[in-house]
Amino acid sequence: MELEIRHLRVVCAVAESGSLTRAAAALRMTQPGLSAQLQRIEAALGAPLFTRSATGVAPTALGEVVLTRARAVLPAMDELARVTARAARTEPAGRRIRVGTVNSSLIGGVLDAVRYLYPEAETCSRLQGSPLPLLDDLADGRLEIAVVGDSPGYEITAPPEVVLAPVVTEPVFVALPAGHRMAPATVVDLTDVEDEDWVAPRPDADRTREYCTAVLTAAGRTLRTVHEAEGRVVEELVRSGHALSLCQATFPESPGVVVRPIAGDPLWYRHLLAWHAAGPFAGSEAARVLMENAEAAHRAAVRRSPAYRSWLGAGT
């Protein structure tokens, strides 16, 4: 893992709070999520940054070194963000539109909307595993719009400058190797597969994995996650028969990979759009075009998914 600015903010927040619980609240994270991220930061640096005790945390000698550098770097980065944000806001609207997205079937529709609203704009996009950095980038003027997502009971909280607009909530499905014994089934009961090997994204500020674990644990289910991966690697692990994976209902089937609904629909995922309240998409007409295109993109993804169409036809 390479250190990023957000990792330095985590270290500073922990030091300033003196407690993982208080730092997690300040960072809009859960305490287990923050603890896991801090452990990965420490692993990347090669030694602990804090000592833990019943009364809280305190920096180690290495922690003090990192904090000294971080406290010198972060104000300069914050000033750079403010300057670039001001510069971006003074440019003519639509000259350059920066789009952020998590893994989502909506991104094509959002880019269509951007092209329609600002045909002369230079448009660029980038993928992010977690929605929280995208919301921070929107608030700081580093993005104009983003596709994000969350889960019931684990809804994301946007900064005051950012508007969140829900698009659609859908069930979570499971991706299986095409030769798997459950592939012929119309739905998969997790009781039949929970003891197999699973792949999931690495836990981070995104609470999706935490949500899935909490819901399944409450139902007496525990998935044996032995691989941590995202994107194409997940697909390859499933195709090669090394793992199963939870996935969005619109996850496209491909040679060697089939997608099936989960019996009882225990897990759900919500797609949202987000934009700056004072940005180029703040107007009602722009918001309408964005939402219509995002919804159309989702409907198109549903039409491409035999499993989703079957689920809808079953009236589940």
Score class of each variant (00 low, 15 high):
Met77Glu: 15
Arg126Trp: 08
Asp189Ile: 07
Val10Ile: 15
Ala294Phe: 11
Leu80Pro: 00
Asp78Pro: 04
Thr21Gln: 13
Leu267Ala: 07
Arg6Trp: 10
Leu106Pro: 02
Ala297Cys: 10
Arg69Tyr: 06
Gly283Thr: 15
Arg22His: 13
Arg304Trp: 02
Ala85His: 05
Thr169His: 00
Thr60Arg: 03
Ala274Phe: 01
Cys247Lys: 02
Thr101Asn: 13
Ala47Gly: 09
Tyr211Glu: 07
Arg209Gly: 13
Thr225Trp: 12
Thr123Ser: 12
Ser305His: 05
Pro48Leu: 06
Gly18Thr: 09
Glu42Pro: 07
Thr51Ala: 14
Thr222Asn: 10
Met77Cys: 13
Arg52Cys: 01
Leu80Tyr: 11
Val302Ala: 05
Asp206Val: 03
Ser310Ile: 00
Thr225Lys: 12
Pro171Cys: 09
Phe50Glu: 05
Arg96Tyr: 08
Val174Pro: 00
Leu74Ser: 02
Val57Met: 08
Leu134Glu: 07
Asp195Cys: 06
Ala54Trp: 10
Ala274Glu: 01
Arg260Thr: 01
Ser310Ala: 15
Trp311Asp: 01
Glu144Phe: 01
Asp136Leu: 09
Gly94Ser: 11
Ala72Ile: 04
Ala24Ser: 12
Ala287Arg: 15
Val258Phe: 04
Val148Pro: 05
Pro255Gln: 09
Glu144Ile: 00
Cys124Asp: 14
Arg86Tyr: 04
Leu8Thr: 01
Ile156Phe: 00
Leu164Asn: 03
Glu170His: 12
Leu246Phe: 06
Ala243Phe: 06
Ser105Val: 14
Arg221Cys: 14
Val147Arg: 03
Gly279Gln: 08
Val66Met: 02
Cys124His: 08
Glu196Lys: 01
Ala139Cys: 00
Pro32Ser: 09
Glu295Gln: 15
Ala25Lys: 15
Ala113Ser: 12
Tyr118Ala: 10
Arg142Gly: 11
Ala121Val: 06
Thr316Lys: 13
Asp189Arg: 13
Arg239Phe: 10
Leu132Asp: 11
Thr222Ile: 11
Ala282Leu: 05
Pro48Cys: 07
Thr186Pro: 01
Leu138Met: 06
Val187Cys: 10
Asp204Met: 12
Ala36Asp: 12
Met182Trp: 12
Ala274Val: 01
Gly108Trp: 02
Ile156Pro: 03
Tyr154Asp: 14
Tyr118Arg: 03
Ala178Trp: 10
Val65Thr: 13
Val233Tyr: 00
Glu210Arg: 09
Tyr118Asn: 01
Leu117Ala: 10
Ser240Met: 04
Leu246Gly: 05
Ala93Phe: 02
Ser240Gly: 11
Val99Lys: 06
Trp275Ser: 10
Glu236Tyr: 00
Asp78Lys: 05
Val57Phe: 11
Asp206Thr: 00
Pro261Thr: 04
Leu164Glu: 02
Ala24Tyr: 08
Ala113Pro: 07
Ile145Phe: 04
Arg202Tyr: 05
Ala44Thr: 15
Val147Ser: 02
Glu64His: 09
Ile107Arg: 11
Ala296Gly: 14
Val162Glu: 03
Leu223Ala: 10
Asp137Leu: 14
Leu134Ser: 03
Arg303Asp: 15
Ala243Thr: 09
Glu122Asn: 04
Thr186Lys: 11
Gly153Cys: 10
Ser305Asp: 11
